[in-house]
C-alpha cells in the first residue's frame, strides 16, 4: 500500500513538473490551432484567422484550410495573396469550383474585367450548373460595371432569377440612359450665352444668376462709359469679365462634377446590389 501511495505521489510530482512545460504547448497543437483559427474565422476576425491557419505546417493543410486562408485574405482585401492560394487548390478538390468563382470575384473587385472574361471563356462549360450560373451572373454583371452593356435586354437578363431580374433590369436601363454631359459643349454654350452651359448641365438657378450678373454688369459698364464715368466703367467691365470667365470655367467643371456624380451614384447602386447578393456566390457552411 505504501508503495502505491509513494508511486502516486511520485507520478503526481512528475506529471506536474511536465505539465509546466507541455500544457502551454497544448494550446498550440495542430488541432487547437485549427479550432482557434476556425473560431476567429467565424468571428470574422479574418486577418488573425488567416495567420492562425498559416501556422499549421503546409504539408498538413488540406484544401479546406487553404480555401479558408484565401477567402480570409480576399475578404480583407489582400487580393494577391488570396489569388496565389486559390490558384493552388487542386482541380480534384471539392472546393475547386468555388475557388474559381472566388478568383473571378477578385478579378471583378479589382476591375480586371478583361482577365475575368478570358478566365471565364477558358472554363466555359466546365463544372456543375450550380457554379456555372453564378459565374455567368458575375460575368454579365461586369458588363454593367465597365460600360459595355450588350444591346439585347432579354439575353442580358437571362441568367438572373426572378428576384434579381427586376433590379438588374433597372440597372440595365439606367446604364443605357446615363445622362452624361459633355464638358466642352457646356463651356462653349456658356461662352455664347452666359449661363447656358450651366442650364445644359441642369443647374438652372446658377445659369440664370450667371446670365443676369454678366448682363447687369455689362450694362453698367456700357452705361458708365457712355456717361463719361470711365473709372466706374472699367470697374464694372472687370466685374462683368470676372463673372463671364468664371461662368465659362464653372460650366466646364459643373459638367465634370455632374458626370462624376452620376457615375458614382450608379456604381454605388451596382456595388450595393452585388454585395447584397454576395457576388452571386452561394454561402459557405463553414460556420454552421
Amino acid at each position: 500500500m505504501k508503495f502505491i501511495v509513494l508511486a502516486i505521489i511520485y507520478t503526481s510530482i512528475l506529471g506536474f513538473a511536465q505539465s509546466n512545460d507541455s500544457t502551454i504547448n497544448s494550446l498550440y497543437s495542430k488541432e487547437n490551432i485549427l479550432k482557434f483559427a476556425d473560431y476567429l474565422f467565424c468571428e470574422e476576425d479574418f486577418l488573425r484567422a488567416a495567420e492562425e491557419y498559416q501556422k499549421i505546417d503546409e504539408k498538413f493543410r488540406d484544401d479546406k484550410i487553404n480555401f479558408k486562408i484565401a477567402l480570409s485574405f480576399s475578404i480583407i482585401g489582400e487580393y494577391s495573396k488570396s489569388e496565389t492560394i486559390f490558384n493552388r487548390i487542386n482541380s480534384n478538390s471539392p472546393l475547386y469550383q468555388q475557388s474559381r468563382l472566388e478568383l473571378l470575384k477578385i478579378l471583378f473587385l479589382q476591375e480586371r474585367f478583361d482577365e475575368l472574361r478570358t478566365l471565364n471563356k477558358n472554363e466555359d462549360g466546365e463544372g456543375d450548373v450550380s457554379i456555372q450560373l453564378p459565374i455567368k451572373k458575375l460575368l454579365y454583371f461586369s458588363f454593367l460595371k465597365d460600360q459595355q452593356v450588350p444591346e439585347d435586354f432579354d439575353t442580358f437578363t437571362q441568367p438572373f432569377n426572378d428576384n434579381e431580374k427586376h433590379e438588374i433590369g433597372l440597372l440595365y436601363t439606367l446604364r443605357q440612359n446615363l445622362s452624361i454631359k459633355n464638358p466642352l459643349l457646356s463651356s462653349i454654350l456658356s461662352a455664347l450665352v452666359p449661363g447656358a452651359g450651366k442650364m445644359y448641365v441642369g443647374e438652372f438657378s446658377d445659369g440664370l444668376f450667371a446670365l443676369l450678373s454678366v448682363g447687369l454688369f455689362s450694362f453698367l459698364a456700357y452705361d458708365n462709359f457712355n456717361a463719361g464715368h470711365n473709372f466706374r466703367g472699367w470697374l464694372f467691365t472687370g466685374i462683368a469679365a470676372g463673372f463671364y470667365g468664371g461662368n465659362v470655367y464653372g460650366s466646364y467643371s459643373a459638367a465634370q462634377i455632374h458626370n462624376a456624380q452620376i457615375r458614382y451614384e450608379y456604381n454605388l447602386r451596382l456595388d450595393s446590389f452585388i454585395k447584397s447578393k454576395n457576388y452571386f456566390i452561394p454561402k459557405y457552411d463553414f460556420c454552421e
Binding site: 507520478t11 503526481s12 505539465s19 500544457t23 497544448s26
Partner: peptide, 21 residues
C-alpha cells in the same frame, strides 16, 4: 487515490496553462 490524483492533476494543468497563456 487514483481518482484524486487524476482530478488533482487535470485541474492543476487546466488552470496552469491558462495562467501561462
Amino acid at each position: 487515490l487514483l481518482l484524486f490524483w487524476l482530478i488533482n492533476n487535470s485541474q492543476l494543468s487546466a488552470s496552469d496553462y491558462l495562467q501561462k497563456q
